[in-house]
Design a protein around this nucleic acid. Structure first.
Lengths: 188, 188
DNA sequence: GCGGAAGCGGAATTACGCTTCCTGTTGGTG
DNA sequence: CACCAACAGGAAGCGTAATTCCGCTTCCGC
């Protein structure tokens, strides 16, 4: 019963790409503060076009978040190819954080927000979770991380470190240091 | 040259108290999203009165944050009276988080934000830092926490756990668990 | 090549909060 | 107790950013 999508007109598809690209840059830099008008301008399109493709800001945001989840799943799958299970785990965590450093949309994906319509990206989230869980389980089985480590722990810890990236006063806040403290509580 | 404050009229002082109380509740519940109109209403006052006491929202917010810093300094001083240095440290951290759980203004204080005029509460921040540092130094000296632990680490870690409190997707996020992971990386 | 559906642009509209302004009130001092 | 600066109230003003609307343009099947 899923409505059969008829093919988009060529220019429409091209414009949709442009919007995603522009939104990707602006949401990365400014998070959800990024403005629709700026996104349209950067895509070289008018507001009307933007709203034809995405009914509202929310929808655009959730599309971006979905894309980020896909990226995160890729990172996890790449980690699976690392021989040492403990290293794989650490590489995955480091990889996420390195990516999140300078991409506020990524932060949104991992830290989330009530008002995002998560239903729309259930699949991407599930793929992400599955890939990450495989890496964690292997590390646990090898005894290289604490035995009670779960996917939820991973997500929570990652979002904790991400919060450090966006933490301002004093300026003396180094997320790599935070990561180290956290890793020392996780790896054996 | 500090302008000598002449005493406020009695009704003015009373109203200022009311505003602080109302703002305390609303900022606690809603963070900086809390609206000036709601604050005035809850204080049982008009907008004009609110703005007579605080020239803008920023000023009210910074006043609240200053108050929170005072509260945090008190917590640290209370911890100093605990005999065991390691327990004192843990109690302080737990105390902060327990308080921050359900008080978004507290979060603002610890996690901060660029656009807050920190100058205005330099003193409160300094008192807070001094008290926390004493507790940390004692714990370090006793060898009960990692030797390289600093005030910055403390703040960063606390704000990381606080981020978990406001972390949404899945709903399966327990900040006490996060705290445990972090403590395991800190205590010896 | 034509017709018209799909797509585009961007000015106007809407919504929502902060802030200001002006009128009426009151505490407290001479 | 009379006066008046300080104070209170809340409606109107503003700025900002999302969203809508509608006349114009472009693709694409015939």
């Amino acid at each position: 019963m899923t409505e059969t999508e008829r093919p988009m007109r060529a220019d429409a598809r091209r414009n949709r790409e442009r919007i995603m690209a522009a939104a990707g840059e602006l949401f990365a830099r400014q998070g959800r503060e990024a403005q629709m008008e700026d996104i349209a301008a950067r895509a070289g399109l008018g507001m009307g076009t933007l709203y034809r493709h995405f009914p509202n800001k929310q929808a655009l945001l959730i599309a971006m978040v979905g894309e980020r989840f896909r990226g995160m799943a890729d990172l996890a799958r790449a980690a699976e190819r690392i021989a040492d299970p403990g290293d794989a785990f650490e590489a995955m965590l480091r990889g996420y954080l390195e990516t999140a450093d300078g991409d506020a949309a990524f932060q949104l994906a991992l830290m989330g927000s009530d008002d995002l319509e998560w239903e729309r990206i259930r699949q991407q989230k599930a793929d992400f979770s599955a890939a990450v869980t495989r890496v964690i389980d292997r590390a646990v089985a090898s005894g290289q991380v604490r035995a009670d480590l779960t996917l939820a722990d991973f997500t929570v810890v990652a979002s904790g470190v991400i919060s450090t990236m966006y933490f301002k006063p004093g300026g003396n806040c180094d997320w790599r240091r935070h990561l180290q403290l956290v890793l020392d509580g996780i790896r054996r």
